[in-house]
Design a protein around this nucleic acid. Structure first.
Lengths: 200, 200
DNA sequence: GTCCGAGCATGACATCTGTCATCTTCGGCT
DNA sequence: AGCCGAAGATGACAGATGTCATGCTCGGAC
């Protein structure tokens, strides 16, 4: 029996996956969570064999869960299942030591399969992403990342400078270098590219 | 027995919801679809009592499905279920004549409940959105919408002008008026606001 | 100690954006 | 015919943005 803790922020999707997994003879959902904190609590309480988590959740994300688990319970494998085929996410997930990374676009058998193989100690990565992972690593520095995030909120340079306690000129420099690295033509395009690749 | 056609672009989520709905004694999923076209085909083939569809799907969206259904099969109610609590989406969904609009954040009982009530001829709208619907209607003109969409792709005014066959000055004018209407400080913020309210 | 590379700042400059007033054209409407 | 409003264009202007060269400081590496 594979005992699973399941984390997913959308209530309906959570119950749907829970009932789907329960249909499998060798899988049991022992705990559910709507965010990262709840997931960690559930792990403490139920000591599952595998943690299955979405990436984008309010507050504590799936990547945060993976990192915490790697520290505190490295013996329990974490599987990420997500909408987003973004190489940046996968890279950071692998850095966080996840055992599996699969896409919600894939057939459901992939999910069940991944749980079983991860439970056996294997690693499972969505094939369409496996290639992307080891080429084109994240070129963006942390500062550039922060600036880009604020650009995405529509803040002008002057406000970004205030938020980050930098001079406006420095903000311009970071943004300029991010634009070059991402091969964008302006701030908006830089943000769009960084978002789509999962660099943020 | 309520016979349902279910449309949802993410394979895993689709199977999960299908198996969840099958657990209900009075609901039967007679057809599934990964996009709007498939949904309409499934409707033709299976003549369901209700169509349950996601909004954001590649190509033909859930709103497109609702509009087509209102024209061709006004007797079959359409229920939208979506991640997005955006008033603009709801407004356009209601304009398209949908019978229900519920959020994936809500408990699963809401979904089942909605299907039953819609099948009885009622209308069901997620309560957290019902208020938003009749205040703050979409202030954006079609031209402004087109410009904003291209802004979101990161295009500079000159490129937007080429794409829309307008002069660059005119693009600036449309964007300027959108910025004022949305109470934004610049193009990027205008895009972010319009996106979050579902105006695009 | 010296050198080097981050990280941050400055100033100058060219270009892009955003605002506004004004103008033309083309359909309606009366 | 005369009037009006929508769609689009123009030109001028101020301010924001993007690029680049240069400079400073500080914490390693040699």
């Amino acid at each position: 029996m594979i005992r699973v803790v399941l984390a997913e922020d959308q209530e309906m999707v959570l119950s749907a996956f829970a009932s789907l997994l329960e249909l499998e003879a060798d899988i049991e959902v022992v705990g559910t969570a709507r965010n990262g904190e709840e997931a960690l609590e559930a792990v403490r309480e139920h000591r599952p064999d595998v943690v299955l988590t979405d990436i984008e959740m309010p507050g504590f994300s799936g990547l945060d869960v993976a990192r915490k688990m790697a520290e505190e319970r490295p013996e329990i494998p974490v599987v990420i299942f997500t909408t987003f085929a973004r190489s940046g996410y996968l890279r950071r997930a692998l850095d966080a030591g996840v055992a599996g990374y699969i896409l919600k676009d894939a057939p459901i058998t992939d999910l069940v399969d991944a749980l079983r193989r991860v439970h056996q100690g294997e690693r499972v990565v969505a094939p369409e992403l496996a290639v992307a992972a080891w080429q084109g690593s994240d070129p963006i520095t942390d500062r550039e990342r922060e600036v880009l995030r604020l650009v995405g909120e529509g803040l002008p340079n002057s406000d970004i400078a205030k938020r980050l306690h930098l001079s406006e000129g420095t903000v311009r420099n970071y943004l300029s270098s991010a634009i070059v690295k991402l091969n964008a033509r302006n701030r908006t395009e830089a943000f769009a590219i960084a978002r789509d690749k999962g660099y943020l």
